[in-house]
């Protein structure tokens, strides 16, 4: 189980805690990561670059896929948006004629994409390759009193046709399966497959913050101790802008809903030090949450 890690932009920028917790959790789960293979890979375009120039997005993604092919490794992503954008580009790049025309722009670098990439999010790898039973067997600190609200991020759920959900129906419930595997309870609420509002944060802040308030309040109302997401962009909005969302939507006081990255939640159950996973470096404090877990930040 060896993968080329595609870290995406955010785990190397505003969410360094995602990067460190990913490495530690993968080590313990036996997912071997090549950190160098995708070192010169570019951003996927995140859907934003595609607004202007879809072909540029497809060319950059084809280049990234070609780098992985050259290294002879499958790609692991740790961001719902990276995964979704790659999957969508890969659907278009399966057209031989189109791929050949894109490859002409990769020639100069000595690269060519032959269509074989099958990028997978860490969440899918855990469910499909590591296996839920193996994960359960590695849990040293089960979290039986914890209630987690899953928050997938749009791009890991839609469009289902590009994400292999037909062949892998388990992907639709993968996050719930992992929450249960670490011994916690899944909170059912309206936000599971909803949008966090991040893409319009700088465009229509009011609507974006309403989405943050709606989902974090919903999770809180259903008794969640924390929300868990495989998408660092969702994390940025739900965690980073929760204080503004609370004041803009005149909620009674702070919402105080901790937002965990997927590997942070798994890491807690594997007994990894919360500080090593930078759980003390969130915008919404995880202190009360960790006290409840009986570990100090």
């Amino acid at each position: 189980m060896r993968y080329a890690l595609f870290p995406g932009c955010v785990s190397r920028g505003a969410c360094p805690e995602l990067y460190s917790s990913t490495l530690e959790v993968c080590r313990r789960l036996g997912i071997e990561l090549d950190l160098m293979a995708m070192q010169s890979a570019s951003c996927t375009g995140s859907g934003v670059l595609q607004e202007r120039n879809e072909r540029l997005g497809d060319t950059l993604n084809a280049r990234n896929f070609a780098l992985a092919e050259k290294a002879g490794l499958p790609i692991m992503t740790i961001c719902s948006t990276c995964q979704g954008v790659m999957s969508q580009a890969n659907v278009r790049l399966q057209d031989d004629e189109y791929r050949a025309s894109i490859n002409r722009d990769l020639e100069e670098e000595g690269l060519s994409y032959n269509g074989s990439a099958d990028p997978k999010h860490m969440l899918w790898i855990i469910v499909e390759e590591v296996g839920i039973e193996k994960l359960k067997s590695l849990v040293t600190q089960p979290l039986p009193n914890m209630r987690f609200a899953p928050f997938y991020g749009c791009y890991l759920i839609r469009p289902s046709s590009a994400l292999g959900i037909g062949e892998h129906p388990e992907r639709e419930t993968s996050l719930e399966q992992v929450i249960e595997a670490v011994g916690a309870e899944v909170v059912e609420y309206g936000g599971t497959t909803a949008c966090c509002g991040f893409p319009i944060l700088t465009i229509n802040e009011s609507n974006s913050l309403k989405m943050v308030a709606t989902h974090t309040m919903d999770a809180k109302g259903r008794g969640a101790d924390a929300m868990v997401t495989p998408c660092p962009l969702c994390h940025l909005n739900l965690d980073g802008f929760q204080p503004q969302a609370a004041s803009a939507n005149s909620t009674t006081g702070a919402i105080d809903m901790p937002i965990l990255h997927l590997p942070q939640m798994i890491g807690l159950a594997l007994g990894i030090d919360p500080k090593a996973m930078r759980l003390n470096r969130h915008i919404v404090s995880t202190k009360n949450f960790l006290t409840e877990l009986a570990v100090t930040p």
């Binding site: 932009c9 955010v10 920028g13 010169s40 934003v48 670059l49 700088t202």
Partner: peptide, 24 residues
Amino acid sequence: HATFFTNSVGHKGWIDEFQLPIRS
């Protein structure tokens, strides 16, 4: 947002998260 994003990725290879909100 879309223009700065594209320029940022096109010239540096990844997003300039620091500048993106400012430039948008």
